[in-house]
């Protein structure tokens, strides 16, 4: 399509305006964290304020922020590693199998991803209670890995299927082992897919709230759960909450911005 310069300028102005309005709530969250408590609760609300790090000091006094971060990290990295270990080989196998029902199995994984978590969470909760894993990181990692590994399998299935078989066949003819054809020939070609899948697993499990809320204990709860628990206590203000929310949102937002190419690939590929 040929573009007239005036139309382009018009489009860009519209886009920029939409973007600014759309991101105002985020801007509000970020700025609240730097406001002194008195000014947050000023009525009517004011826009001007003197920035302070007071809220950040407060949350370090009130919460063991490092422990919360550690929990979130363990849960999301554990889930991601397990999901990739299960999902990547499975995706490859389903893409390469000449078995008629391989696609049906791939769809089965896709279906697992759409299951509402409530349907599995209650029996899983009882299961974890019976084997004594309730309140541990394992419980969250195990249940999150089902959804995420189903997602990774489906996504890698689509990546491997788009990859021509010739290279692997050539390697096999040259005496390469089956494992070598997978690990040394096919795998390096889908690294973008693996990064995209990993980004997704990290994001899903870092942002997850429902499963850790019921499956972790006081010592193992991640940031997302602490955020809401904090909200119930009297001492909490929007400022301290904004400060705590920094820790829960900034890592993922930065990851999505800097690895945007992979992030976008994951979002669009996961549905096709």
């Amino acid at each position: 399509m040929r573009a007239r310069p005036r139309q382009v300028t018009l489009e860009r102005t519209a886009l920029l305006a939409i973007l600014v309005v759309w991101l105002l709530p985020v801007l509000w969250l970020v700025t609240t964290a730097y406001k002194p408590p008195r000014e947050i609760f000023s009525s009517p609300p004011t826009f001007a304020f003197t920035p302070t790090l007071f809220n950040f000091q407060r949350i370090f006094e009130m919460f063991d922020v490092w422990a919360l971060l550690k929990s979130s990290l363990i849960i999301s990295l554990g889930t991601t590693v397990l999901s990739l270990l299960f999902g990547v080989p499975a995706g490859y196998a389903l893409a390469r199998a000449k078995w008629r029902y391989a696609i049906a199995v791939a769809y089965f994984f896709l279906a697992i991803r759409t299951v509402p978590i409530i349907a599995t969470l209650i029996p899983f909760y009882l299961m974890m209670r019976d084997i004594g894993l309730l309140g541990t990181w394992w419980a969250v990692v195990l249940i999150n890995t089902t959804l995420n590994c189903a997602f990774v399998t489906w996504m890698m299935f689509s990546y491997f299927r788009a990859l021509p078989r010739d290279m692997e066949e050539a390697a096999l003819t040259d005496g390469c082992t089956l494992w070598g054809a997978f690990y040394r020939v096919a795998l390096p070609m889908v690294v973008p897919g693996i990064i995209a899948s990993a980004l997704f697993c990290i994001m899903f499990s870092w942002n997850d709230f429902l499963t850790p809320m019921f499956l972790t204990g006081p010592d193992t709860k991640p940031l997302s759960v602490a955020l809401l628990a904090a909200f119930g206590t009297k001492d909490i203000t929007w400022g301290t909450l904004g400060a705590l929310a920094h820790f829960s949102t900034v890592p993922i937002v930065l990851m999505a911005l800097f690895l945007n190419r992979y992030f976008v690939q994951g979002l669009t590929r996961g549905v096709q």
Binding site: L23, V26, L29, W206, L241, A245, V253, L267
Partner: peptide, 17 residues
């Protein structure tokens, strides 16, 4: 890239905002 920020924010935080 910036428009996608809401997608990445923890849903709990979205609710709180």
């Amino acid at each position: 890239a910036f428009l996608l920020i809401p997608v990445t924010i923890t849903p709990i935080v979205v609710g709180l905002i």
